[in-house]
């Protein structure tokens, strides 16, 4: 009986232990370790949600952004929910002689600085998924983005957008 109870306690504790393992304060890592970590997480996210957008060109472009009222980078929904929080934006460069993405990158992954958890991914076609750490989303194949090749000449078309 005692043995059964012990096994049950172990099984109940595993999810919590697993969750604890995922949490990493990225800011506390050395620069090298931080880059390695962010790259690893971002690669995993892109390979999962949009494998067609995964590119091997390195280094990835990493920026650190803190959400403030003056912040012009973060979308309104992030400012509404996460004011004051810091994240790392990891972008995947691509070969402009082969294809074209209007956003200027093949994929972009947002990773929270305080937990190291990925929050969103946006692909070169401008569409994306948020709250990607949510198992319901992570495990749903409908959130996987299909890749569509756009030739470099498409760049001229996008010049007709007057932002």
């Amino acid at each position: 009986m005692k043995t059964l109870l012990f096994i049950a306690m172990i099984l109940m504790a595993i999810p919590g232990m697993a969750q604890q393992k995922k949490t990493v304060n990225v800011d506390s890592l050395s620069e090298k370790k931080r880059t390695e970590y962010l790259t690893k997480v971002a690669e995993k996210v892109v390979k999962h949600f949009g494998p067609g957008y995964y590119r091997k060109i390195r280094p990835l472009v990493i920026d650190k952004i803190t959400i403030t009222p003056q912040d012009t980078i973060s979308p309104p929904y992030m400012k509404r929910e996460f004011m004051g929080r810091t994240y790392y934006r990891v972008r995947f460069p691509y070969d402009e002689n082969y294809e074209f993405f209007p956003l200027g990158y093949a994929a972009e992954v947002i990773i929270w600085a305080d937990t190291g958890i990925a929050y969103s991914v946006v692909f070169g076609n401008e569409f994306g998924v948020v709250d990607i750490n949510n198992p319901k989303i992570y495990n749903d194949s409908r959130y996987i983005m299909q890749y569509e090749w756009q030739p470099p000449e498409t760049r001229e078309l996008y010049k007709l957008i007057h932002r």
């Binding site: 969103s120 007709l160 957008i161």
Partner: peptide
């Protein structure tokens, strides 16, 4: 929209193709 979906805003590629 279904939970988690993220959208760009402004004219899409299809829009621009029609607007040449």
């Amino acid at each position: 929209a279904a939970e988690g979906i993220h959208f760009p805003v402004g004219p899409s590629k299809k829009d621009i193709e029609f607007a040449q």
